[in-house]
Design a protein around this nucleic acid. Sequence first.
DNA 1: CACAGATGACGTAACGTTTCCATGATGACG
DNA 2: CGTCATCATGGAAACGTTACGTCATCTGTG
Lengths: 358, 358
Amino acid sequence: MMTTLKDVAEHTGLGLGTVSRALSGHPNVRPETRRRVEAAARKLGYQSNGLARALRSNRSNSIGLIIPDLENEFYTTAASVVQGLLAGEGFRLVVSCSNNSPDVDIELLGTLIENRVDGIIHVPCTPDGSDLVRAANPRVPIVEYARRSSARGVDSVIGDDERGSAEIVQHLVDLGHRNIAVIAGPSGLSTTTDRVSGFERACRRNRLPKRGCPVLYGPSYDAHWGEVATSQILDEHPDVTAIFASSSRGAMGALKALRKRGLAVPKDMSLVGFLNPAWLDVSEPPLTTYELPLNDMGNMTARLLLDRIRRPRAEEPSEPQVLRFDGRLIIRESTAAPRTYELIRSRSTLDATAPRSR
Amino acid sequence: MMTTLKDVAEHTGLGLGTVSRALSGHPNVRPETRRRVEAAARKLGYQSNGLARALRSNRSNSIGLIIPDLENEFYTTAASVVQGLLAGEGFRLVVSCSNNSPDVDIELLGTLIENRVDGIIHVPCTPDGSDLVRAANPRVPIVEYARRSSARGVDSVIGDDERGSAEIVQHLVDLGHRNIAVIAGPSGLSTTTDRVSGFERACRRNRLPKRGCPVLYGPSYDAHWGEVATSQILDEHPDVTAIFASSSRGAMGALKALRKRGLAVPKDMSLVGFLNPAWLDVSEPPLTTYELPLNDMGNMTARLLLDRIRRPRAEEPSEPQVLRFDGRLIIRESTAAPRTYELIRSRSTLDATAPRSR
DNA sequence: CACAGATGACGTAACGTTTCCATGATGACG
DNA sequence: CGTCATCATGGAAACGTTACGTCATCTGTG
């Protein structure tokens, strides 16, 4: 049915080994022989069988990617840059999607390993890495992206969410806000805890009133949750003058909810997002946000993994690394001084205008 | 190093074949034996080797996906729904990215086949299917998505771009527009030609002035091209009162360009997009557009492919199908009557208000 | 009791590569 | 001219699985 190496060998009258070497660029083969083999291969429409090669040589040239959501540009940009870099190095990408389910996550890990991928890039769905370690029992290199788990022996590439959150809050405080609400994500994720802890650090530093700065944990980072959370904030925390949506999709939902209530951004309410997808600056108003260097992060992830794959087993013990990438605050038009700024100012000038002075 | 079937066989004192059958659910094995095998497998941490199984059984349980761009939500939503459906059927998805390069496209096709994927979902980068046919020489089922090529023997699932364009134009004409510009994509793609031909059909039907309705072909469907094209339209075609950007990203770019010139949408210029990503209704103003049922299309694509894969070779000759999906016009706030509507109306009332009457 | 049919297990042959080892052939060098 | 290294090639083993033919054992039946 399908022509194999053996067919080519018979057709040329050469041995199996010779043909294999000729086609795979081994040096020890006469140039003329190589030409002959190549001609025959072309003529017979030979196409080498990657499965057999992978089985025999124990390298599949494919690496697995597990992300929680294929429709979230945060992960697809990662996938894109990783894919680009890996393709250049001769690797295929097997993309799986965990839908944020830890069970599916573990299962996918198993499937990938079963299919002998050479390495895995993983966005873990749970901070508990023990299952992960068990599933990944065999020594296949893993790099965690964006989120980290407690799994030992794996590298991770993450954004400095803690710092980003703090910068955002500082920006709001500098504008005069004292009551800031956070629309957070699922409480288990490292991204959520980092963003919230950055927020809280900035709150403490600026002596913001704890009960005036609610943190709303939710089921996801989606727009819908952003919308729901915003309604809740408006209903239950009338003092809030700025909303920090810890995802761009959440910010989009928040924007919708605010519009629905007839509130103007930033006049009636300041709004900040997190991360900077391409569409964020075409919203009205363009959103202030914190941008992470996703390209650099993706590239580094792929490089790190390739390095682990290629490093001779001997010098293995190099410590697992955690690479944390800084981002930058992008100030657009969705943040401004609160309406009640004058009032606040008169009450506590010191804290509001010069929070860093002490 | 890694425990294999043989290890399990030795450990249980059973034969290789028996162990294989026990683990793969073959009926002819004593329940107790099966339990024994499973226990041993668990104890030894056995993980079957997918490569070997694929090689031997000639089924890899993986299917390839080639899309032009991993950062375009149009393709990633397709990838997402396809991935979901296939995962449920026990298939993995190998995602490749052609970057709209025909050469890369062909090469990827080859790589996928070399790795013996069971089927391929393909967004072709060129209308010329001859290379494709040559690359796909072996009989692996292929379904084309979104775009179609001249390759014979492959099914395709596409949106009815022609009709959608025509509907959009009709909407604009109904509002009173007579000078409509199209920001088209690359001229070779079937999506481009379909969208343009729908546009032209609607123009003819409504007797729009040919030279007043420029079509701008460009290098891509990107926001940047949308921006450039819009500038060009404003400079060279001052009569134009409505812009039809044949992609949502292009529309985003157009919006930017219009803002930069201080033109209000839809007061000074009507703007329509194509396709309906989640962020499109948070733009200002929310864009009128034509929505395609991407979920249905993705599902159908996967189903079609699975069907081809599973259909016994005997009944093969079922004709390749072209499935064309209708969408729907979503009228938001970016379209309105042109400023000069009254003027136009007085000049040609009949054409403008009752175009369908003859 | 002999025998057909079912059942469960065994061993071996593939699947298509790569890789290693053995074998001639060739050329260089003292 | 003999020795040794180098090179080109052939052949076979191995990778880990599934599939197939064979065989022993057991059950029920005439």
